[in-house]
Write a protein that binds this DNA or RNA. Structure first.
Lengths: 253, 253
DNA sequence: TCAAATGATTGATGGAAATCAATGAAACCC
DNA sequence: GGGTTTCATTGATTTCCATCAATCATTTGA
């Protein structure tokens, strides 16, 4: 997701969140701003399918993902949906300084987020160099993530692109908080994908039929196990990486 | 490219550059900072193929494209190259505030850029709210651009993806500087694509042969005219848009 | 000036994927 | 419960595309 040097701390706006507080951000800010920033944010729990930010409307709230997965969905003129990207823990969303959003943001899974109003956030950013830099770094990380998707979607065959998608989802599950693996290597990795096949298909630039065949091809090869269409175990991360045929993803897992 | 409200000027760091000066930026800055910002930038001419920023190394210079096309290339471990995105006039590049870049930037064509050292640029950004906002907006535009590519590359068929590419290139031409159209609607729109077919093909995830056929399919449908492989007239923007969004090109013509 | 090299195009073909059509399978609603 | 809807899957067929190969056009170099 990021392009930072190995070993360097990742640019997280809020750092370690194990205690449920904005520890990292507070540390980075001068004491007088700590209380103010902490007071801005409000914890929210979203159910899968909830619309966080509606397409086209001014985003009045800034958000930060604690747990779960959000999707950015662009609605096309002919009623189809096109998924632009995913938002996973440590990602920020919203449109600070940038007008209305061109897409809708939905909760893909049950999700925990922090949100705050846009205006006071922007004001605080403008006053504090430290806060501004955190915001900038987060923005640059988002840019890296978007470009990672470009590479993932560049795969020639459908199984390849599907493997890339599963890898990206796996990594977020696998890395846990602040890079700590939460699942032992070699164990099945359970993915709960709360998204219709049709949407995944569109995202990967293919049809639901071909996508279904690709899923079952991976299952036949003992790389994944399909418990239900929305509940999948990754059995062989190494093979999955191989199928993806993508060096970028290979390096990071 | 941008998601700003209609009518609002696009967030360009330097605005109108017809006179070769940083007119727009100067206007946006307080008088005392104008001279300082202008003094930072240095005009450079790059030959096609030149490496602007090497993969993995700290980018010590910030750049801004005046003319030509730069390409962001990710080198994969198995020696293949994957093109992540293009940089066209008014795009900024470099890694201000964000460590080393994960990809290399090359000049695809003879290119004119403005560059400046990273440190003084960052310092000026930190001192000036106006400069900071210009930078932020540019960054947000880049993010929009990257996500636009995700949509473009999501097209199922090659003609579709090619149409998306031509549309994105057209918009740069058509919008002109600061959102003003430079070409009347309905007129042929001339594009100078100084990229080899092979590179375009790779970018769109296809082969040169199929790409060539797609180009000529668009020509047969009177949507474009191919003067030379590098000089193309867009005859029908509406149809081109239709093809980009709609997989059904083959049927009705 | 003529080779040699590079890039663009065209043709032919096997394999991959879109499409059409039908069946399962589960959730939902009277 | 039974009927309807929605989604996932499977099969059959057509279309598309990557690949191999050859040709044409343009540029390059001795």
């Amino acid at each position: 997701m990021t392009q930072h040097q190995p070993g360097a701390p990742r640019a997280l706006p809020f750092g370690k969140l194990a205690n449920g507080k904005l520890q990292g951000l507070l540390d980075a800010l001068p004491p007088d701003l700590r209380l103010e920033m902490a007071g801005l944010w409000e914890h929210r729990t979203l159910s899968a399918g909830a619309v966080v930010i509606e397409d086209g409307q001014e985003a009045e709230r800034i958000g930060y993902v604690l747990d779960g997965i959000l999707v950015m969905v662009k609605k096309l003129s002919d009623d189809r949906r096109h998924i632009i990207g995913l938002l996973t823990p440590y990602d920020m969303f919203g449109r600070a300084f940038n007008g209305a959003s061109g897409y809708r943001i939905e909760a893909l899974t049950d999700t925990q987020v922090l949100t705050c109003n846009r205006a006071p956030f922007e004001q605080l950013i403008a006053r504090s160099i430290e806060a501004e830099q955190l915001f900038l770094r987060n923005l640059l990380d988002e840019l890296d993530a978007a470009r990672e998707w470009v590479i993932a979607l560049g795969g020639a065959k459908v199984v390849q692109r599907l493997a890339s998608l599963l890898l990206i989802l796996s990594r977020h599950k696998f890395n846990g908080v602040c890079g700590k693996p939460t699942v032992a290597d070699g164990q099945p990795l359970n993915l709960h994908i709360q998204i219709k096949r049709q949407d995944i298909a569109h995202y990967l630039g293919t049809s639901p039929e071909t996508l279904s065949r690709s899923f079952h091809q991976l299952e036949d090869d003992k790389i994944i196990r399909i418990n239900t269409p929305y509940d999948i175990d990754v059995l062989d991360l190494a093979k999955l990486t191989e199928v993806a045929g993508n060096a970028l993803l290979r390096e990071r897992i």
